[in-house]
Design a protein around this nucleic acid. Structure first.
Length: 196
DNA sequence: TGAGTGATTGACT
DNA sequence: GTCAATCACTCAT
């Protein structure tokens, strides 16, 4: 498991890179589900597309807190998305986890997702929260020492690709999306632009 | 107090 | 390719 110091002293972009290849684990009464992080996006308070841009609210408050916590938000009336809070307390920044490669609790994920195809379990930000059962109750939790945590890198020797982010209407030119090159579990089956 | 918008997905044409 | 589902939050009355 990673320690608190892993999240400290990094810019949000550095953290987004460092999280690739790490395993995100969630222990629940139903069992353990986990997957390797294969795609991330960084968001900063100076970024127009970020929830922490300009305004601090009850919803994004945790992004301004100390790093290494979970920022979980509800959007489009039906979907949860999961972020890792980054940078020092007082700065609103976070890393959106967009896709996982399933590793543990695959049968449980299939049950939660009502899908059998391994690729379709976690290849999208709202899909992985459903597969790992991450909801508002996980808002603000630390990602070191609890039931929801991140491990040290499981993968090595992979190449990191980067490019514009997906699904936003502002700051689309910023190359703040990072993913593991040639990994089939990366999302973006339907980005507006073809990036790779 | 209420209209407008969104870091999405899945079903349907 | 197009569109509905449906809630939290922002911003303008």
């Amino acid at each position: 498991m990673l320690t608190k110091s892993f999240f400290e002293g990094k810019t949000v972009e550095e953290l987004a890179n460092a999280l690739l290849g790490c395993e995100l684990v969630h222990k629940t009464p139903e069992g353990i589900t986990a997957g390797i992080i294969v795609e991330t996006e960084s968001y900063h308070e100076t970024d127009e597309a970020s929830h922490s841009y300009k305004y601090r609210s009850k919803r994004n408050e945790i992004m301004f807190g100390p790093p290494g916590h979970a920022y979980v938000y509800f959007t489009y009336g039906m979907h949860w998305c999961f972020n890792v809070v980054a940078e020092n307390e007082g700065i609103g920044a976070g890393v959106l986890i967009r896709a996982l490669e399933p590793t543990q609790g695959i049968e449980l994920m299939k049950k939660r997702r009502h899908k059998q195809n391994l690729v379709e379990l976690c290849n999208g930000p709202a899909k992985l929260t459903q597969a790992l059962s991450i909801t508002r109750k996980d808002y603000g939790k630390t990602l070191y020492g609890g039931d929801l945590y991140i491990t040290s890198p499981k993968l090595k020797d992979f190449k990191i690709a980067f490019g514009p982010r997906v699904g936003i209407s502002k700051a689309q030119d910023k190359p703040w999306r990072f993913w593991i090159r040639d990994n089939p579990f990366v999302s973006g089956s339907r980005p507006k632009k073809k990036l790779d």
